[in-house]
Computed example of a mutant assay.
Amino acid sequence: MLTGKQKRYLRSQAHHLDPIFQVGKGGTNDQLIRHIVEAIEKRELMKVSILNNCLEDKHEIAEELAEKSGSELVQVIGSTIILYKESKDHKQIELP
């Protein structure tokens, strides 16, 4: 579980990142989650954007992605989700 200070730090690190994946009309699926797991292991911190045609609630999608990928939900802002998971092999971010 991340503390408030750690979440603030991660939000500042994620500010310049571009979203890597998009959740559209189909919502989430196993393939999307598998790709997120692979990408987050290399990057540790990533953004996922939710398209306007997505019918599901963005907060539910964010919680589902975080839970199924084993990552921490840092923030949902607008239609963007920020996820963090400490990497085993590619550690880059040092949390305060």
Score class of each variant (00 low, 15 high):
Ala39Leu: 00
Ile61Gly: 02
Ser12Trp: 09
Pro96Ile: 09
Ser87Trp: 03
Glu60Ala: 08
Gln92Gly: 06
Leu45Gly: 07
His90Trp: 14
Ile77Asn: 08
Arg8Gly: 02
Glu72Asp: 10
Glu56Thr: 03
Ile36Val: 14
Ala66Trp: 03
Val23Ile: 15
Ser49Trp: 00
Leu95Glu: 12
Lys68Gly: 00
Pro19Lys: 06
Ile81Cys: 01
Ser49His: 06
Ser87Asn: 12
Met1Gln: 09
His15Val: 09
Ala62Asn: 03
Glu63Asn: 08
Lys91Cys: 04
Lys5Pro: 02
Leu32Arg: 10
Ala39Gln: 14
Tyr84Phe: 15
Asn29Cys: 07
Ala62Cys: 00
Arg8Met: 03
Ala66Asn: 02
Gly4Gln: 14
His35Cys: 05
Asn29Ala: 04
Leu17Asn: 03
Gly24Ser: 12
His59Gly: 01
Lys5Phe: 14
Glu94Leu: 12
Leu51Ile: 00
Leu51Phe: 00
Lys91Ser: 08
Leu51Glu: 03
Thr80Ala: 02
Ala39Cys: 09
Ile33Ala: 04
Gln13Leu: 15
Asp89Ile: 11
Gln75Asp: 08
Met1Glu: 05
Gln6Ile: 13
Leu10Ile: 14
Cys54Asp: 01
Gln22His: 05
Glu64Met: 02
Glu64Arg: 12
Gln22Asn: 05
Lys88Glu: 05
Gly70Gln: 07
Ser87Gly: 09
Gln22Ile: 02
Arg11Thr: 07
Glu64Thr: 10
Leu45Glu: 02
Asp30Gln: 09
Ala62Gly: 01
Asn53Arg: 04
His16Lys: 14
Tyr9Cys: 03
Ser69His: 05
Asp57Phe: 01
Ile77Leu: 03
Leu73Gln: 07
Glu72Pro: 02
Glu63Asp: 08
Gln75Phe: 04
Leu55Arg: 13
Gly24Gln: 08
Gln31Cys: 01
His16Cys: 03
Lys85Met: 11
Glu67Ile: 06
Gly24Ile: 07
Ile82Trp: 09
Thr80Glu: 06
Gly78Thr: 03
Ser69Lys: 07
Ile82Gly: 11
Asp57Trp: 00
Ile93Ala: 10
Met46Lys: 02
Leu2Gln: 13
Gly70Lys: 10
Arg34Thr: 11
Glu56Phe: 10
Asp30Cys: 01
Gln6Arg: 13
Leu45His: 03
Ser79Asn: 15
Thr28Phe: 07
Ile81Lys: 05
Ser12Ile: 10
Gln6Thr: 10
Gln92Asp: 04
Asp30Trp: 02
Val23Glu: 11
His35Arg: 15
His59Phe: 07
Gln92Ser: 13
Ile77Phe: 06
Thr3Phe: 15
Leu73Ser: 13
Thr28Trp: 03
Gly27Arg: 15
Pro96Arg: 11
Phe21Glu: 04
Asp30Arg: 09
Val76Tyr: 12
Phe21His: 08
Pro19Ser: 05
Lys85Ser: 11
Ala14Asp: 14
Gln6Tyr: 12
Ile36Trp: 06
Leu17Lys: 14
Val74Met: 12
Gln75Met: 06
Leu32Ile: 12
Ile20Leu: 15
Val23Ser: 11
Leu95Pro: 09
